[in-house]
Simulated scan of single mutants.
Amino acid sequence: MIFVNGAPFDTDTSSSKENGTLLALMNHPTLVSATKSFKAIPERKFKIPEESGPERSEKCKWVYLFQREYATADPALVDFIGTDEATTCVSFTIRNRKSGITSVAHMDSPNIVDNGLNQMLSSFIDHCSDDNLDVHMVGSFEDVSPDHGSDSSGSESDGNLDGYSFSLCSKIIEILIMREEKFHFQTLCVLAHNTRRDSEGNACPIFNGLAVEMSTGSVIPASFDTTSRCPDEIVRRIRVTASYEDHQWDGKLLETYNTRTDRFEIAPCRWTWRQERIARRLRDLSDSEVLHICSTSPSAEAPDFVTNERRKWEYLIQHPDWKETFPMEQPRVFERTADGDWKMC
Rank of each mutant, 00 (worst) to 15 (best):
D250G: 11
D250H: 13
D250C: 12
G251Q: 09
L253F: 01
L253N: 00
L253G: 02
L253R: 01
L254R: 02
L254Y: 00
T256M: 07
T256H: 02
T256K: 09
Y257K: 01
N258R: 11
N258W: 00
N258F: 00
T259G: 08
R260A: 13
R260T: 12
R260S: 13
T261W: 05
D262Y: 06
D262A: 08
F264D: 15
E265Q: 15
E265D: 11
I266W: 04
A267M: 14
P268N: 04
P268K: 02
P268V: 06
R270D: 11
W271F: 08
T272R: 10
T272C: 10
W273R: 14
R274D: 11
R274P: 07
E276L: 07
R277D: 14
R277L: 14
R277N: 14
A279W: 04
A279H: 14
A279E: 05
A279S: 15
A279R: 05
R280N: 08
R281H: 00
R281K: 09
L282R: 06
L282Q: 06
D284M: 07
D284H: 10
L285K: 06
S286W: 07
S288D: 07
S288E: 11
E289C: 10
V290M: 12
L291H: 03
L291R: 15
H292P: 05
H292L: 04
H292M: 06
I293R: 14
I293E: 09
C294F: 06
C294S: 13
C294L: 13
S295N: 08
S295G: 05
T296I: 14
S297V: 04
P298K: 06
P298F: 07
A300Q: 02
A300S: 15
E301M: 15
E301L: 05
A302Y: 07
A302G: 11
A302H: 13
D304P: 01
F305C: 13
F305A: 12
F305M: 11
F305L: 13
V306N: 01
V306K: 03
T307Y: 02
T307E: 06
T307K: 03
E309R: 15
R310K: 15
R310E: 12
R310T: 08
R311A: 11
R311S: 14
R311V: 15
K312C: 02
K312D: 03
K312F: 01
W313G: 03
Y315K: 13
L316K: 10
L316C: 08
I317S: 12
H319L: 08
P320C: 09
P320Q: 12
P320D: 10
D321K: 06
D321W: 03
W322I: 00
W322L: 06
K323L: 09
E324T: 02
T325S: 11
T325C: 03
T325I: 15
F326S: 12
F326P: 00
P327E: 05
P327M: 05
P327T: 04
M328Y: 09
M328F: 05
E329T: 00
E329C: 04
P331E: 02
P331D: 09
R332H: 10
V333C: 14
F334N: 09
F334H: 12
E335L: 10
E335D: 02
E335T: 08
E335A: 03
